[in-house]
Design a protein around this nucleic acid. Structure first.
Lengths: 418, 418
DNA sequence: ATAATTTAATTTGACGTCCAAAATAATGTT
DNA sequence: AACATTATTTTGGACGTCAAATTAAATTAT
């Protein structure tokens, strides 16, 4: 049960659902806001005026819609999120570099930048302060001051600790417990949070579907690694320290194949790009895998030779499918989800993986549990991580918007709007 | 995001937290209700009067507390849940019988009854209607009419389907998809719900701890079977169809030991009473296990011979610990919980199990994930399932109390209180 | 005994939210 | 130009909480 309720709670909650409606469905007239939120026209008027006063929303300055000639009556005036209400920065850290995006309150990307860094050998402090400098430069290039950015959201491969703001362990780094949030907050003065990239993919998949996910769903990422984002009760589940759901490093077979995490038997050691490749090439799975990512062209070639009938390649994909299948069977037994969504570049080879995957699920969990769950494939697009990070960060912003005063320092306190 | 908020939401939520405070902390004066809930004394007065009018609450008729002689001022008047506000029935179905408890709104057990039934060979329809008759008799013995009972909560071993109100699969039954809710609702006219017994144990463990569980916790049951109740975000997680968290039938080793669910490699096949016994006696684990429960005395003897140094027994317990450990490692990777609570009669042999269990967790999941989680043991008491079912059912009642009129048919509509 | 003190609980008046209904605005139709 | 239609705003009332003042019921001091 939550805490006590009062008119302040009512105010915040209703303003929040109005913003949420605009974020999910885009610009719309006040009447429709009323329909979607269930609030009366009178309340919508009040709330809209306040949000417009607060610069969080604005009336769109557009000619009345005359597309439907049968339409009568006073024309609607659409309202929308004010793009200039706030700006956020989304950052993606991966093994080969860093990607930054400056996004306005309406979700439009204003500016983005890619920087290549060989992260693997870096010292923890060097990386943190280095990234902070990159962010500061990004501020400079976009003429941003500290107050101009409301929040910075970061996604990274590996195990994150959202409380400490660190990367606890990641295949992109030899080092552990790398502080990320603190140096950036110190350098920029902007609050910052970090999350696992698979969780951000789940956010992206949900956002693409307008958050229609109601119950429990598991979004599986297949590619250079194997990850999972769990949607529980319509929200992405982060776990107690932000480390959920490490599907890739969930054990598959005790004493099994050697994994990048220097542990034996992880699911990823069978089902990630390097695991599949290693198995197809009949290399020993008891040796540490390479620290660099597999060239996508190599994986493409492997798929094709499997489809051409290469027995080793076919077997490797079947092995991967069986590993993922047993992992999903275990997850299903534990969580009884209603949806499983497969995503990531690895789904390109789904035809090679799926038979073994489905067989393993059947073998691994009682019919009563697995018969409910629907398995789908999400469209692959490269930017899922950044998109998801943006969605999550903006949603975070929406919910904190009313706790404090104005969101963004208006250009100059003394300046009046002309 | 939840729906729109209005004064009705405020009303319901605040009345709910007042009831919740009384349920968790017992009778207390109005001032303290204010302190706990954060509501002002003025509001507490209003709310208390309404709840008293609604017969949900009452002032306790007791002499002022004079235990503290230094105490001055107007004495407090304690209020409490009105025991007669409503009654519920909690039912536990297990392999050897059925247990019923009639409980009042204050959580006091008014009457209870045990009935032995050989469930295993029963036909699904026979069991459902038979149970319904037992419940009807229980009504009769306690002079209950349909309107006198607000809800019936049922806990059972095995996989439940809370939507259909059935036992999808259970070791207590040869049959599958046994309808339980429908026949009872039909026979009694009282709403009824069904849940897994391990989830109810989790409810019981939480209730014993006054629902201090905030984040994610996993309560493991060890005994005739192996079960788990997951507490996510302070609430017991039931999954999309009420079948979570089937820890016992989460696969441990593909193609492994034969399980009661006629599947190979389930965790339970290694770590339940029958699994441990089978392994200690060096019987083949490729044959179906017995359908009846293991005599507790046999398990006690096995523990003692293990403690006396019997190599087979010791190895069996170590094997069980390794299975549970790997299961927990997988669960930790997936859910990043902050607490694991071991409960059930199986914990009596924890000294024999724990070393292998902890070693398996270390072997099975990266340090960054497991270092956070605390492993505890819950006190064992036999009634955990019934206690938990009562707690869950009353809590359910609390939250539905304001959606409809009076909760319970007052003895006779025409009768006035004297 | 009576007044002062202390703590609990209630009453009173104000404030903030939402909403229904009435009024107003802005267009199309006749 | 009057009427119809749809969107939005205005008005007045309802319902919840809260702060402050008041009342209630005890103990302590005089």
């Amino acid at each position: 049960m939550r805490g006590k309720a009062d008119s302040d709670l009512v105010r915040r909650q209703n303003r929040h659902i109005v913003l949420e409606a605009l974020r999910l469905h885009g610009p719309m007239p006040r009447v429709e806001l009323g329909r979607i939120t269930g609030l009366s026209p009178a309340s919508i008027t009040t709330i809209a005026n306040q949000l417009i006063d607060d610069k969080a929303m604005l009336e769109m300055d557009e000619a009345p819609d005359r597309s439907d000639p049968t339409r009568r009556g006073r024309p609607t005036v659409r309202v929308n999120l004010n793009p200039d209400a706030a700006r956020i920065i989304a950052i993606k850290i991966s093994i080969d570099g860093v990607e930054l995006a400056l996004v306005n309150f309406a979700g439009e990307i204003i500016s983005r930048k890619n920087i290549s860094i060989a992260t693997y050998e870096m010292q923890p402090e060097i990386f943190g302060t280095g990234l902070a400098k990159i962010v500061r430069e990004f501020f400079g290039e976009n003429k941003l001051k500290s107050g101009d950015v409301a929040h910075i959201g970061i996604a990274t491969q590996g195990v994150t600790n959202s409380q400490k703001g660190t990367i606890a362990w990641s295949p992109a780094f030899k080092a552990r417990d790398i502080p990320v949030v603190a140096p950036i907050e110190k350098e920029t003065g902007v609050t910052c949070s970090i999350a696992n990239d698979a969780n951000m993919i789940a956010e992206g998949v949900m956002a693409a579907d307008r958050y229609s996910y109601t119950g429990t769903a598991a979004v599986v990422f297949m590619g250079y690694g194997v990850g999972m984002g769990l949607v529980i009760d319509g929200k992405v589940y982060h776990g107690s320290t932000g480390a959920a759901a490490e599907f890739g490093h969930m054990n598959h077979i005790p004493n099994g194949a050697f994994c990048r995490c220097s542990r034996a038997g992880c699911l990823e050691a069978y089902a990630s790009d390097y695991g599949i490749l290693r198995s197809a090439e009949n290399r020993s799975d008891q040796l540490p895998p390479p620290s660099s990512a597999v060239d996508p062209a190599v994986m493409l070639a492997l798929e094709n030779s499997a489809r051409a009938g290469d027995a080793n390649a076919t077997a490797a994909y079947a092995k991967a499918g069986r590993a993922i299948g047993f992992g999903l069977a275990r997850m299903i037994a534990l969580l009884n989800p209603d949806r499983i969504v497969l995503a990531g570049p690895g789904t390109r080879a789904l035809d090679l993986i799926e038979p073994a995957l489905r067989a393993a699920i059947e073998e691994g969990v009682v019919e009563a549990l697995r018969s409910q769950v629907k398995i789908e494939t999400a469209p692959i697009y490269t930017d899922m991580i950044i998109t998801g990070t943006i969605a999550a960060t903006l949603r975070h912003l929406d919910s904190t918007i009313f706790s404090s005063g104005p969101m963004i320092s208006q250009t100059t306190p003394t300046e009046n709007s002309s």
